[in-house]
Nucleic acid binder design. Structure first.
Length: 282
DNA sequence: ACCCTATGACTAG
DNA sequence: TAGTCCTAGGGTT
């Protein structure tokens, strides 16, 4: 489930699996025609910026992946010498690492690590220069240590759009999605409908610092945990989860963990916004 | 079997 | 703002 932390986690994982050797790349579904361009190439490393994932290959080529709303990777291991299983369902791209080839006959050896990409909104071979282009269109990424939050603040303070909408705009901030948007606004005690022009700089700084910390936890754990220890009583499970993880996301109708007010929900620019009318009044 | 929803984002108008 | 991309899971017939 892809917000920025998911892509950074995948970049870390794919680098661990594939960096430093050639990989086999194919298109089981038949739609990733350019797989032949990178098949057999040396895999340099994987990186992520915002919700974009890049597989960097030697020769100045990269595979640009965006998971969209419901894209995901299946990841599994294959024993030495064994054939990887036939893809089940629609697999856009399969990448397989190459095992040692004892026969030294010039043939590519057996795969060991395999990842299957399903349902992405984007999977294409691009030049490294175009990677820079994609990154250049994104706002600062809280998961990038070199990111400059002032770039985001300069846009926010001049915009009449609501802070709830601005946080979701990848040109303003890269990597924030619907869960982090809702949770970070709750933790800051901010009304999501506050116009950017009415935002106080200290509140934006608090949001940025909180995103840096929360998203780093997301990369490490693979899940979005936002509840402070003082508010984690193990009760009121979020829908679809076995344990409480969030304050407001998908908790509409439930009592706020802090003030008891029922959590509200409303569509905002085609996405469902969740907030606590008690804690986040303007 | 059918309907809805989902941690996203582009395009047309 | 609606339609599209097109995967999976959950709830309801």
């Amino acid at each position: 489930m892809p917000e920025g932390h998911t892509l950074h986690r995948l970049a870390r994982l794919h680098t661990e699996y594939f960096a430093g050797g050639p990989v086999r790349v194919c298109s089981p579904q038949g739609r990733f025609v350019d797989s032949i361009v990178v098949d057999g190439r040396y895999f340099d490393r994987a990186t992520a910026t915002g919700k974009h994932l890049f597989h960097h290959y030697e020769g100045g080529l990269a595979v640009h992946i965006h998971l969209g709303l419901y894209g995901f990777f299946d990841t599994y291991r294959v024993n030495d010498g064994a054939e990887p299983p036939a893809p089940v369902g629609q697999v856009r791209m399969r990448v397989a690492s190459v095992g040692d080839d004892d026969e030294d006959d010039g043939e590519v050896g057996s795969p060991r690590r395999v990842i299957d990409l399903r349902g992405p909104t984007r999977c294409e071979v691009i030049a490294e220069t175009d990677v820079d282009g994609v990154r250049g269109r994104l706002g600062p990424d809280p998961l990038d240590p070199a990111a400059d939050p002032d770039r985001a603040w300069d846009r926010i303070r001049r915009s009449s759009r609501t802070i709830g909408a601005l946080l979701m705009d990848q040109k303003v901030l890269a990597g924030v999605g619907n869960v982090y948007r809702a949770e970070v606004l709750f933790r800051a005690g901010l009304d999501p409908f506050t116009p950017g022009t009415r935002m106080r700089e200290e509140d934006f700084r608090a949001i940025w610092d909180d995103l840096v910390a929360l998203m780093a936890v997301g990369v490490d754990t693979g899940a979005i945990h936002t509840i402070r220890p003082a508010h984690d009583h193990g009760d009121l499970p979020r829908r679809g989860a076995d344990r409480p993880r969030n304050y407001v996301y998908q908790r509409d109708g439930w009592d706020c963990r802090v003030c008891g007010t029922p959590i509200a929900q409303q569509k905002l620019e085609a996405r469902t916004l969740f907030w606590c009318p008690g804690c986040q009044a303007s």
